[in-house]
């Protein structure tokens, strides 16, 4: 019986400690004058030039995650291509120059500003590249492999392979 009482005492003490720490944190947050500044996502040139995103900005802000999720199912599982809400398109349009990526355009600055503010962790970029597919850098024509491929293609054509 004494044992049970002890357990109860411990439980009450723990609960009280927990409540106190909660109150303390709430107080600390309320007392501070400064609030976390609102995010201002970096706008890429491309995005600025475009009159509108694939949907009105207010709509994109609220629903982009649903659109992305819907389309990822459509594209990967059903093979639907060319729909407007692809992550690749987001990155290509919204990416800005990123020192961390050696000057390449990445979507980090654009995506993370709001996600940090809203404390949202996304794992898109654990698989998808955050780099924009800029033609100069990744152009198929310039890589040695495609040069070789082009050469071979020509040779193959000469032998009238392409019926």
């Amino acid at each position: 019986m004494t044992d049970l009482r002890q357990t109860k005492t411990y439980a009450v003490l723990t609960a009280a400690l927990f409540m106190m720490s909660l109150l303390f944190m709430a107080g600390a947050a309320g007392a501070g004058e400064e609030r976390v500044p609102l995010p201002h996502p970096a706008m890429s040139e491309k995005a600025q030039k475009a009159e509108n995103c694939v949907a009105p900005v207010s709509e994109m802000r609220r629903y982009h995650m649903q659109y992305l999720k819907h389309q990822r199912v459509e594209t990967l599982r059903k093979g639907v291509r060319g729909n407007p809400y692809s992550l690749k398109s987001c990155v290509n349009c919204h990416a800005v120059k990123d020192k961390a990526a050696g000057g390449a355009r990445t979507a980090d600055a654009f995506c993370s500003s709001c996600h940090k503010y809203a404390a949202v962790t996304i794992d898109c970029f654990s698989c998808h590249t955050n780099k924009a597919a800029d033609r100069k850098k990744t152009s198929a024509v310039q890589s040695p492999v495609s040069q070789l491929a082009a050469h071979l293609e020509k040779a193959a054509k000469d032998r009238s392979l392409l019926k």
Binding site: K88, N92, C93, D134, A140, L161, L162
Partner: peptide, 24 residues
């Protein structure tokens, strides 16, 4: 047009390869 503008990079790249025409 609006859609095509948005789908810039990668898709354009794809069409280039198609244009180079290795559709055996």
């Amino acid at each position: 047009l609006a859609r095509r503008r948005f789908l810039s990079g990668a898709v354009a790249l794809g069409s280039v390869s198609i244009a180079s025409g290795f559709t055996l």
